[in-house]
Design a binder for these strands. Structure first.
Length: 584
DNA sequence: GCCGTTTTCGGCCCGACTGTTTTCAGTCG
């Protein structure tokens, strides 16, 4: 069973307990446990079998047993027992904005409303007003929330949220008195999708900032507006929250609103033990005296920790690593020296000429580009002879450009449903960089997909496994796959796994990166550019890698050109040796 | 339910805004 599924069940137990009047601290314990499992970098099932589950923070004897039950039987009796007491429609009501456990419990137990349709009817008829603390305004808000829930766009991909945030921040910085304006929240942690946008502004005079914010051109509705805080919904559908603080609090606030919640609780608890209080206004000692808060570093310094980069603040071991002075030195965009997955017009879907790609690559400071057009299984893909001619053209241009940037002749070869590669091995061995990818039958069951990929990796001709899970954010789920097995074979075979930096893919994702690092498998961050401008996508991949705790040494395309090519040739040489010794 | 050089029992992060109320509960982040 996947970690995500275990986390979902634990979180649902928390909801069910809350609705049935359970101990609020028990509810919190389940929530925390769900969070910990959700971000844990490797499957927890083996951990349960090895008896090490209760060593995870927030997982004690009882919750470990529940997880074990889930892993062993696929069910959890405690969950099932609670679920019989609460109709599924009641749980669904909890996902409405502005509707929490108290309200749901009140309309369910008090009015007999047990699903969204019932709640909608009760709002329209006015019967919902019989519930405590529900008036006409809330009834209307609930109706609107039901509406949004039904047509929900869901979470927004990071790159789109960033565009909205940047546009708004630029405007807020124009407001007189504003000294700083930054994005916080999951956006700053560079999560792959963003549920809402959190913005933070430093100003001694909050009023004008709040007013400017709620009157921005893209605003569809102001949801809340107070003296220092406001929320709006953009016409694009996403909610934006603004908080204005005095400059002396900006660092503490930036830390606080960057989160994650789990990280903040851990950090505040640590502060409490040191006799300090950390809030968004600053760090305060026992006497209530401010000891810091203007800079984010103040918060970490106060609790005796080094600065933790935002991408790591998921409560997934970063505090412990910081304590042990074992934080990774995260890879940066400037560490990347080249790009190993780029398409040209030679095959189906590329739109730029080789010369344009090379020129743009050089302008971006890339020292090498691997041209990896599609193989014949893709519409208009290249067969052996065409690919060899294309490789010759790439090398001729490389010679003409004098290796600035160095152009590598490569291919993105399809992994066929059988696990065979779409081109003969001798053609592949003549190339500098072979990127293998699955593009068909993405919904195959995990055992079949895993064996298919393993067979391709065992071919000996593959340097990089591209977009390993095939997911497309918001439109296609990742393929079922035993990533642990793929990683162990990749390690044996010397194959790197790609972090595909197309903003809609980001595949591997953060959790996969961390697993690759743990398995000792190098990663390649690639743009998969289909036109020259997309070479800039690399930065999205860097964010994913940073969230996956990767350092420059974990990423192959931080190597300078000669060293990289030696690495790729070593792989090919190994293949030849083995073929020679295993072929009769 | 979890956790501990303040505790194996008795705590559990902290604050803003809204709507419903005449002082605060609920929700959210």
């Amino acid at each position: 069973m996947e970690n995500a599924e275990i986390a979902r069940v634990l979180s649902e137990i928390a909801d069910l307990l809350e609705l049935t009047g359970g101990n609020p601290f028990k509810v919190r314990a389940y929530r925390r446990a769900a969070q910990v499992i959700d971000v844990h970098p490797s499957p927890v099932a083996p951990l349960w079998r090895a008896g090490g589950l209760a060593e995870l923070p927030g997982i004690g004897e009882h919750i470990a047993e529940k997880i074990g039950e889930l892993v062993d039987t696929g069910e959890c009796r405690e969950h099932a027992r609670l679920a019989t007491q609460v109709p599924p429609g009641v749980l669904e009501m909890l996902s409405l904005e502005g509707v929490g456990p108290k309200t749901v419990a009140a309309v369910w137990k008090g009015l007999g409303v047990s699903d969204l349709a019932g709640l909608e009817a009760a709002c329209r008829s006015g019967r919902v007003l019989e519930a405590p603390r529900v008036g006409a305004v809330r009834a209307a808000a609930i109706l609107a929330a039901i509406e949004r829930h039904r047509g929900r766009a869901g979470r927004m991909p990071l790159h789109r949220a960033l565009e909205h945030a940047d546009a708004i921040l630029a405007r807020l910085r124009q407001v007189p008195g504003v000294s700083r304006a930054e994005a916080a929240g999951s956006l700053r942690r560079r999560k792959e999708t963003v549920g809402d946008i959190d913005l933070l502004v430093a100003s001694a005079d909050a009023g004008p900032v709040v007013r400017a914010f709620t009157r921005l051109p893209g605003v569809a509705a102001a949801l809340a507006e107070g003296p220092t805080k406001a929320s709006v919904r953009l016409r694009a559908g996403i909610q934006v929250d603004l908080r204005v603080l005095p400059p002396e609090s900006f660092g503490a606030a930036l830390h606080y609103f960057t989160g994650s919640k789990t990280h903040n609780i851990a950090l505040r608890t640590r502060a409490m033990k040191l006799g300090l209080k950390v809030s968004e206004y600053g760090v305060f000692d026992r006497a209530g005296r401010r000891v810091g808060g203007a800079a984010e570093e103040d918060v970490f310094r106060a609790v005796g920790l080094p600065f933790i980069p935002p991408e790591l603040r998921e409560g997934a071991g970063e505090i412990e690593a910081a304590e042990a002075n074992a934080l990774p030195r995260l890879v940066e965009e400037s560490d990347l020296l080249g790009d190993l997955h780029v398409h040209s017009r030679a095959s189906s879907d590329g739109r730029s000429e080789l010369e344009e790609l090379a020129a743009r690559g050089r302008a971006l400071g890339r020292r090498y580009l691997a041209v990896t057009d599609h193989s014949r299984a893709r519409p208009l893909g290249l067969d052996g002879p065409h690919l060899e001619a294309h490789a010759a053209a790439v090398r001729a241009l490389d010679a003409r450009l004098g290796g600035r940037p160095r152009l590598l002749a490569g291919v993105e070869v399809d992994v066929l449903p059988t696990g065979e590669l779409d081109l003969p091995l001798d053609v592949l061995r003549g190339l500098d960089c072979v990127v293998a990818a699955v593009h068909s039958r993405l919904a195959d069951p995990a055992p079949r997909m895993t064996e298919r990929i393993v067979r391709a990796l065992r071919s000996g001709a593959v340097h990089v496994l591209a977009h390993p899970t095939g997911r497309a954010l918001g439109s296609r789920d990742p393929s079922a796959l035993d990533l642990g097995r793929v990683l162990s074979v990749a390690r044996e075979e010397g194959v790197a796994l790609e972090v595909n930096a197309m903003p809609e893919r980001l595949d591997l994702g953060d959790v996969g990166c961390r697993a690759a690092r743990a398995a000792g498998v190098p990663v390649v961050i690639s743009s998969d550019a289909h036109e020259a401008s997309q070479l800039e996508n690399l930065r999205h991949g860097v964010w994913v890698a940073r969230r996956g705790w990767l350092e420059a040494k974990d990423v192959l395309n931080t190597l300078p050109p000669d060293e990289l090519q030696r690495r790729l040739r070593r792989r090919t040489a190994r293949t030849r040796t083995r073929t020679a010794t295993t072929t009769p």
